[in-house]
Write a protein that binds this DNA or RNA. Structure first.
Lengths: 255, 255
DNA sequence: TTCTGTCCCTTTGTCCGACAAAGCTAGAGC
DNA sequence: GCTCTAGCTTTGTCGGACAAAGGGACAGAA
């Protein structure tokens, strides 16, 4: 017969974890604001009363979580986690779970349509200017699949940004990061791919400017369906995404 | 005048980072499969030819990224990153970016509707059985806001799972984790909240079983609108989410 | 004046060696 | 066959050490 629960489990986290938790708490509840210095490792040694090795392990945890960074001079300071970095962890996880391009496509359809709807409704002049700038650059590199794919990825980030919804911005990022490397392959393989891509972007900006929701959704769907058709020429939608990811991961590491 | 960029920055990653990268590469490209042991720290010291402290810093990075874990006996092994753990990093980031409940609500509306559409289309018998089980437990705790909120969170995880789309599953998680703690507050504050919540779940399961997409979407919208109305009774949608998060983070830490 | 080279101090990245606590393993004893 | 105990291994932590690199101050050169 199990005894009645008299005691709660004791918190026996290792010291490095407690260090990380303590610093995280101060950042999340705002006592340490993004940009504030954390102090040197030696400072933390004094404050927490543990060895420097222990402090350093705790710092690694926070660094990987995106809560703190080292600036050019390697000093520690708190920072706002960057969506793209966090999303790359998720992308990696999706790869390990061997998600298929079909899943990626379906989710992206939902998320990109939601993005454009938000953008049509709430894009500012600045947002539109950024999109125009991106379009100009895309047109200049329409013959270079790698550069064009990069522009395309940035375009959709800008659309999401224009939606003024950061939750959406973050939610779409992991799928988009896995999409992106395939775009280059597709544009390379499909003759009309580049110009069609740029044309779709032009229509999307136009829809945002005219606050024309129908047109925005329509062209987003077409744009993604183009991607899908291009993809189906080179592989099955039920393929999982490992190989595409490996290239992308290498590129991210160079950044 | 700035000089033209002639050279690229040299890759001078510290040793602990290289250790982490090397192990990550082996896991992502599948040479180390989830569940495989990584070896002891001493093994890694021999293989990489660096000090144990350096190895340990690399291990912390991978651990935080969810790629490796220590089992009950603290031995290292590779593992599939868990969505809920990764998502909690994103939730934390959203809090730090001070997203509003309006953003959360909008994004969730999109993501939950997409989930139910997928579930209506592709839910298996097992998925429906899990949902039924969840409903039964929800009915049993309808008077206990904390337990009911927990059941509600699980219900929506199960719906997303039934959509058979893991990208969607992952994309909705961060927003859902921030939603969850508010549900308890709302159910506590609104007399009819509990029963309405359970009724909505019942209609949703019914829609999934009958493959009735319209009904699924309709009841998902109503369910979320209920949440919104409840929330607006206690706070403005334009509030950001810190305070709600703090409670949730503490609960997560106990887990 | 503005740039460059130098010296010094601080900080980080890495290494070495050490030890207690907790898990695992293999016999000893029943 | 089972339990128990004495090792051995592994992790978490500690203390101290040192080279490399950054920052700052300062002197000298163009």
């Amino acid at each position: 017969m199990p005894v009645a629960p008299l005691f709660r489990p004791i918190d026996v986290a290792p010291a490095y974890q407690k260090v990380a938790d303590a610093i995280e708490r101060e950042i999340v509840n705002g006592r340490i604001k993004p940009g504030d210095p954390i102090g040197t490792e030696h400072d933390l040694v004094r404050q927490f009363g543990v060895n420097r090795s222990t402090i350093r392990e705790g710092i690694r945890v926070l660094e990987e979580g995106g809560l703190i960074r080292r600036d050019s001079s390697r000093r520690l300071h708190a920072c706002l986690p960057r969506y793209s970095k966090l999303a790359s962890r998720l992308s990696r996880a999706l790869v390990l779970h061997e998600v298929t391009f079909r899943e990626l496509y379906e989710a992206s359809m939902t998320l990109e349509v939601a993005s454009i709807e938000g953008a049509v409704e709430r894009a500012t002049e600045d947002n539109i200017a950024e999109l125009d700038d991106n379009l100009a650059r895309s047109e200049a590199v329409v013959g270079d699949p790698a550069m064009l794919a990069e522009c395309d990825a940035e375009f959709h980030v800008l659309v999401a940004k224009a939606s003024q919804n950061r939750v959406l911005q973050l939610a779409r990022e992991p799928a988009a990061q896995l999409f992106y490397p395939t775009t280059e392959v597709i544009v390379t393989g499909v003759a009309e791919g580049g110009p069609r891509l740029v044309a779709a972007h032009r229509h999307l900006i136009d829809a945002i400017r005219r606050r024309d929701r129908e047109a925005g959704v329509l062209w987003t769907r077409r744009h993604l369906q183009d991607w899908r058709r291009g993809f189906e020429k080179i592989a099955s939608l039920d393929r999982s995404v490992e190989h595409m990811y490996m290239e992308h991961a290498q590129a991210a590491r160079r950044r």
